[in-house]
C-alpha cells in the first residue's frame, strides 16, 4: 500500500471537538457533576437531619430566626447528627496536618496502626490463599474436603468471629498487631483462593496438551503455564483482598477496646458522640482503601506490561 492511498485527510477545523464538548464527552465532566451532586445532597441532608435540635435551641434562646440562620447553624453544630463536609474536612485537616504524627490525636498515627495490621494480614492472607488454591487445583481430595470449609468460613459474620479471635489469641499472649492481622487474613484469603483456583485452571486444553507433548514435569507445567496464566486473576483477587483486609483490621479494633487505630477512633467517637471525629475517621479509612487498591492496580499494570499483555 502506498502512503498516498493510506493517508487520512485531517478533519476540517469545524468538526474538531471544542473544549467544552471535550469536557462533556470525556470523563472529567460527568465525574465532576456526580461529585458535586453528592456534596449538595450531603449538605441538604445535614440541614435536614440537624434541624430538629436547632429548632429546640432557637426555642430555648427565644430568638427570631430566618432560614439563613437555620442553615448556617445546622452546618456548624458541635455534635451534629450528620456533620457537614466542611466540618469533616476541617477536622481532618487538624488531625492529619496540624497535630504531630506521633500524637494520639493524630489520624496519621491511628492510620498507621491500622495500616500495619492491614498489610501484615493481607500478605499472610494472599500467601495462604495462593497455597490453598494450588492445593485445591493439584490434589483432587483437597477440592472435595477443603472447598466447603473455605466457603463456610465466609458465611460467618466477621463481627461474631473477631472477639473470639482476639480472646483466644490474647490468652496465649498475642495482643495488638497479630490478632488484628489474623482477622484481616481471615477475610482476605478467600477472594485470593477463589480467584486463583479459577486462574490456575484457566489454561486451555491445547496449552496443557502442549506441555504433555514435551513430557514436562508437574512443576514445569505449574511455573511455565498455570502460574503465568493465573496472574490476571491474582491481581483482581488482590484488589478485593486488600480492601477487605482494611475492613478486617478496623473490625478487629472494635471489640478489643483498642487504644489506637481507626477502629478505636470510630469507637471513641461513638462513645462521646463525636460525630465529626467518626466521619473523619471513616473518610480516612475510605481514602486509605482507595490508595491501597490504586497501588495494587499500579503493580498490576506494570506486571502485565512486563508480561507483554496487549495494552
Amino acid at each position: 500500500m502506498t502512503s498516498e492511498v493510506a493517508r487520512i485527510e485531517p478533519l476540517p477545523a469545524a468538526a474538531r471537538p471544542g473544549l467544552l464538548s471535550a469536557f462533556w464527552q470525556g470523563r472529567t465532566g460527568p465525574v465532576l457533576v456526580v461529585a458535586l451532586a453528592m456534596v449538595a445532597l450531603w449538605y441538604a441532608g445535614a440541614v435536614w437531619l440537624n434541624s430538629p435540635w436547632q429548632y429546640d435551641v432557637f426555642q430555648r434562646q427565644d430568638v427570631e430566626w430566618t432560614t439563613t440562620d437555620l442553615v448556617r447553624e445546622t452546618l456548624n453544630q458541635d455534635r451534629p447528627v450528620l456533620p457537614a463536609p466542611h466540618q469533616v474536612l476541617a477536622e481532618m485537616q487538624k488531625t492529619i496536618l496540624e497535630v504531630a504524627p506521633d500524637s494520639r490525636r493524630s489520624l496519621i498515627y491511628h492510620s498507621w496502626v491500622t495500616l500495619s495490621s492491614t498489610l501484615l494480614g493481607f500478605a499472610i492472607g494472599s500467601l495462604l490463599g495462593i497455597l490453598l488454591a494450588v492445593g485445591i487445583v493439584y490434589v483432587k481430595a483437597l477440592e472435595k474436603s477443603l472447598m466447603p470449609w473455605v466457603i463456610a468460613s465466609q458465611t460467618i459474620p466477621i463481627l461474631a468471629i473477631a472477639p473470639m479471635v482476639v480472646v483466644v489469641l490474647g490468652s496465649i499472649g498475642l495482643r495488638g498487631l497479630i490478632p488484628k492481622a489474623v482477622i484481616s487474613t481471615y477475610l482476605s484469603f478467600f477472594p485470593v483462593t477463589i480467584g486463583m483456583v479459577k486462574g490456575l485452571r484457566s489454561p486451555d486444553p491445547l496449552q496443557l496438551d502442549l506441555m504433555r507433548t514435551y513430557s514436562a514435569s508437574r512443576w514445569q507445567t505449574f511455573w511455565k503455564l498455570r502460574w503465568p496464566s493465573s496472574v490476571p486473576f491474582l491481581f483482581t483477587s488482590l484488589k478485593v483482598g486488600i480492601a477487605i483486609s482494611l475492613v478486617g483490621a478496623i473490625v478487629g479494633e472494635l471489640p478489643t477496646g483498642a487504644q489506637a487505630g481507626l477502629g478505636a477512633r470510630l469507637l471513641a467517637g461513638s462513645y462521646y458522640g463525636q460525630t465529626v471525629q467518626i466521619w473523619s475517621a471513616l473518610f480516612t479509612a475510605a481514602f486509605i482503601a482507595a490508595l491501597l487498591v490504586a497501588l495494587v492496580s499500579l503493580v498490576e499494570r506494570l506486571v502485565l506490561k512486563r508480561m507483554g499483555v496487549k495494552p
Binding site: 486451555d204 491445547l206 511455565k224 503465568p228 508480561m307 507483554g308 499483555v309
Partner: peptide
Amino acid sequence: QAPALYPW
C-alpha cells in the same frame, strides 16, 4: 489446530 502460543 490453533497456534497455542503462550501470550506472556
